[in-house]
Amino acid sequence: MFDQQLANGIFLGAVYALFAVGYTLIFGVLDILNLAHSAIFMASSFVALALVRHGMPFWAAFLVATAFGGALSVVLDRVAFAPLRARGVGGGALGPLISSIAFGIIVVSVVRGIFGPDEVGYPTGAVLSANLHLGHATFTAIDLSVLVISLVMMILLSMLLKVTPLGRAIRAVAENTKAASLLGIDVERTIGLTFLIAGALGAAAGILIGAQFNAVGILMGQRIELKGLAVIILGGMGSIPGAVLGGFLLGLLEVFSVAYLSSSYRDAIAFAVMFLILIVRPAGLLGKRAARTA
């Protein structure tokens, strides 16, 4: 029982973390709460499903749809954020929040128009569904792949941010846009690439969760959007390790609360934790930002 719950919590947490990493990356760099991230997550999941249905193997569909998510995220930046940036509207303002909501509405509406409002699943045999055993826990091959892919992507991201020139540029822009620009960093290009990475991560999370639960639906974005917020608040806004930690913690908390307490309040856990963290320690577990006014 315990082993099984632990495994379930880790698998759930991996996807939460992967979704939240992209979310928090944008916040860390631009101070923007990107409410269109979940729309990209959902749209990419549909793209992967459509490709598999047209006969593409899952791994190839995963790569193509992930790239699609990254590209859509760049479009999001150009359409919804770049014009506001050009006008000098900073993060933390109402403008970018609203324009990301608007972009999200457009994406959701197009996807609903193309794929319809119903939840759909993958064709049988399209994703690995063999059962595996470890200790007393049983899980499927896709569960394990989700965990492995998530971990690999998150490790690659933190290495990219730490050691590559692009990573240094992203961190410089996050620190101070003007100073970064004075140092010869192409700020707009760096921001564009940041959106590409964040979108690809969100897309990967969407594709994996769609395959894992074998359900792709228009509401999946809405469902994870607010959970993702809880994760990045728990971990600390803008902190990548925080988002990873927060994702796994929330996954475990939810699974164990269903197992040992009650299932009806499962979704309340995320928001109760988020609310408490904001009041007690708004910087989150690993964040440094001051969230309170003097």
Partner: peptide, 10 residues
């Protein structure tokens, strides 16, 4: 007492 985006999230 929370600022900007944090008030929104709370």
């Amino acid at each position: 007492r929370l600022r900007g985006v944090f008030l929104a999230i709370a």
